[in-house]
């Protein structure tokens, strides 16, 4: 298990270096001189040259990348041109907000999807199974932003139960914060919830026809014990894998949801960076998001060992 974790850790580092490289390439892949786009067409030649020098654009590309990367490793993403602030600070103030949103969504989707998938599998072909399966398919198909707008219209404008938008830290006003976060996190949890429920259902169905489940039944165990004690731990591994993949969607989805609900998270920072052509922000956000996703996947891989002793005892 120790070498397994070490190997995965090295892989994670390699992935992060690659992501940072491709994120940096952005600067060169997008047409036009970044200095010109930033300063506008009216800028003088001297101004442009000065900015090019400031950004290091007059040096060889690989050199620039290594330079930027060494700074990033030390936690310095450079200075934003639109905010005139350190990007590291910009990211660090916004990351907890996106985390808050993501964690609530993750919590909601896991808490609902796994029991729903299990019930669906156990009551296969029944009414409850049909309801859950149809809802899950619907959940996969509904566009996020549409659901968000509909939610705002219904619960905020018509019923007035929830605030329309905005974000408050849970540490300053917990009640307000919860009221504000509930709608966006529900929207964000729909897709992971639906796909996790479907995965739980299908892997449960696979497990309950295994020989060892028949053994468990032949021992006289209760159905409930068989499902929770014997089947679920076997069925959960593909679900956890999918959970790791869904982390990416949580971050990706937050770009959309943060825009719809006007939440000052990392997603919106990234969108702003894209629109304002502030490449350093975009690069910084990409690297941060990649870091979070890579760490989440590392955790998922380590958790396999907990669920499956065969992985734990490898080598």
């Amino acid at each position: 298990m120790g070498t397994f974790i070490l190997r995965r850790l090295i892989q994670t580092v390699v992935v992060l270096v690659l992501v940072s490289f491709f994120a940096y390439l952005l600067l060169y892949l997008i047409p036009g001189d970044p200095a010109v786009t930033m300063l506008g067409l009216e800028a003088s030649k001297e101004q442009i040259e000065a900015l090019r020098h400031e950004l290091g654009l007059d040096r060889p590309m690989l050199f620039q990348y290594v330079n930027w990367f060494m700074n990033v490793v030390q936690g310095d993403f450079g200075k934003s041109l639109i905010y005139r602030e350190n990007i590291t600070d910009l990211i660090l103030t916004r990351l907890p907000i996106t985390f808050h949103l993501g964690l609530v969504s993750l919590f909601l989707s896991t808490l609902i999807s796994i029991p729903a998938g299990v019930i669906s599998a156990v009551k296969r072909g029944g009414l409850l199974d049909s309801v859950i399966t149809v809802s899950a398919n619907l959940g996969m198909a509904i566009p996020l932003f549409w659901l968000g707008i509909l939610g705002v219209y219904l619960f905020s404008l018509k019923l007035g139960w929830l605030p329309v938008q905005g974000y408050t830290s849970p540490f300053s006003d917990f009640w307000m914060s919860t009221k504000q976060i509930i709608m966006p996190s529900i929207c964000l949890s729909v897709v992971p919830l639906a796909s996790l429920a479907r995965q739980t259902r299908s892997s449960m169905l696979e497990v309950i026809r295994q020989d060892y489940i028949r053994t468990a039944r032949s021992k006289g165990l209760k159905q409930r014990t068989i499902i929770t004690g014997h089947a679920l731990k076997n069925a959960i591994i593909p679900v956890v894998t999918l959970l790791g993949i869904q982390m990416r969607n949580l971050v990706g989805g937050s770009v959309l949801i943060e825009t719809v609900f006007n939440i000052p998270g990392i997603g919106r920072l990234m969108v702003r960076g894209v629109f304002e052509k502030d490449f350093l922000i975009v690069q910084g956000c990409i690297v941060m998001v990649a870091l979070v996703v890579a760490l989440a996947n590392l955790l998922v891989d380590i958790s396999y060992g907990y669920f499956d002793p065969r992985i734990r005892h490898e080598e």
Partner: peptide, 18 residues
């Protein structure tokens, strides 16, 4: 399991692996 015990054909798959 209490009054009638069962033993199955496939020992490789009849025990819960986890």
């Amino acid at each position: 399991g209490g009054k009638i015990g069962l033993i199955f054909q496939e020992p490789m798959t009849s025990l819960n692996p986890v």
